[in-house]
């Protein structure tokens, strides 16, 4: 695990933090090959092969670390890991490729899948990071109106749409067009079924470490600020109100860290949802509090903590807790 995480950590500290700030201010600086370069350097997509047994815990560790520098990059990998964790039990997966699916799950538009002709038709809107994806897991309807999800490899035409998220700024949102798209092979077709609940839950397995990374970053920024900033003739870290805020952030971080290694055992699908619903408000509060520690400066882009809130809130909205309230 150490050997896997060390280079990621170094990369986060040395490059990612700085770049992420830049990409937020100037999203056009983040190009498709920017992601490729990161991947080339770190080889994160190879994780399932490197250490099969510890894949999930390694992946969670990586997501957590990445998020402590940049929510957007962590998000791409978290989505990828969620999809691959789910699928790898069901089929063998090509390695080193980025998996993307419509993450606003329960979206009701379906592509048409003509099995015999090996063709897809239709379009999917609102796909986040669709331009970076190589393997897609998509909702489709067959000729006989059988519905399910299809795993395909291949690039399609992608057109960028208006960005609608307050955060995850450098990632584009777009429409993937499958008009007359010929499939080489479908890698897997899963008819609609109970499995969907499991699929949705896999995202949470990776979102909790992602939130943990975001909160850690927010805490670091606000704590360092509190040591330097003087009010009332003392560093504000000495002010009881500020200490109270920082302590509550630390408490949430400790909880998130703990839950980041929640074991995948029986009943995990239900449990992870409950965990998610119970910690999500605290995670948000922790980031809001980090801004609060910094007063007016926390609200300004230059001070880098408000971005974390925008990233967090974008992700929380995509995975709204309302979608995870189980009966």
């Amino acid at each position: 695990m150490e050997e896997i995480l060390k280079p990621v950590e170094k990369f986060v500290k040395k490059e990612l933090i700085e770049n992420c700030h830049l990409w937020d201010a100037e999203p056009q600086q983040f190009r498709k090959d920017t992601f490729r370069q990161i991947e080339k350097k770190l080889g994160i997509l190879q994780l399932p092969e490197i250490d099969k047994e510890n894949f999930i815990s390694n992946a969670r560790g990586v997501v957590r670390l990445l998020a402590s520098g940049c929510g957007s990059i962590a998000f791409i990998y978290a989505v990828n890991f969620a999809i691959t964790s789910f699928l790898k039990e069901r089929t063998s997966l090509p390695s080193g490729k980025l998996f993307i699916s419509p993450v606003i799950i329960e979206k009701d538009d379906w592509l048409f899948y003509f099995k015999r002709e090996k063709k897809l038709s239709g379009k999917l809107d609102g796909i986040i990071a669709g331009d970076l994806g190589e393997i897609f897991f998509l909702p489709v309807a067959r000729e006989n109106d059988e519905r399910g999800w299809l795993l395909i490899e291949g690039t399609t035409s992608y057109s960028e749409e208006n960005s609608f998220l307050p955060g995850l700024r450098p990632l584009t949102t777009g429409r993937i067009n499958f008009e007359n798209f010929s499939l080489k092979d479908d890698l897997l077709f899963l008819p609609q079924g109970e499995w969907f609940e499991e699929f949705k839950s896999w995202f949470l397995i990776y979102l909790i470490p992602l939130f943990s990374g975001l909160v850690e970053n927010a805490l670091n920024i606000s704590e360092n600020y509190a040591k330097e900033r003087f009010q009332g003739g003392q560093p504000i870290i000495e002010i009881p109100s500020v200490r109270r805020l920082l302590n509550s952030i630390r408490a949430t971080l400790a909880t998130l860290n703990h839950l980041s290694s929640y074991p995948i055992k029986s009943r995990w699908i239900e449990e992870i949802r409950k965990i998610y619903i119970s910690i999500i408000d605290d995670a948000e509060e922790a980031i809001l509090n980090s801004i609060q520690v910094m007063g007016g400066y926390g609200y300004m882009q230059d001070y880098r903590v408000e971005r974390i809130l925008r990233d967090f809130r974008s992700i929380r909205s995509i995975f709204s807790p309302l979608e995870y309230i189980t009966e």
Binding site: I104, F164, P166, L288, Q292, G296, E306, S317, L322
Partner: peptide
Amino acid sequence: ALDIIRPGDHPYWLAAQKLYRDAKLVQIY
């Protein structure tokens, strides 16, 4: 409100995410 409105369901979503960004300031100034 952001939990209720699905991202991308415009124009509700766009307006709600803006209000959320706006909201944080009132705890500060």
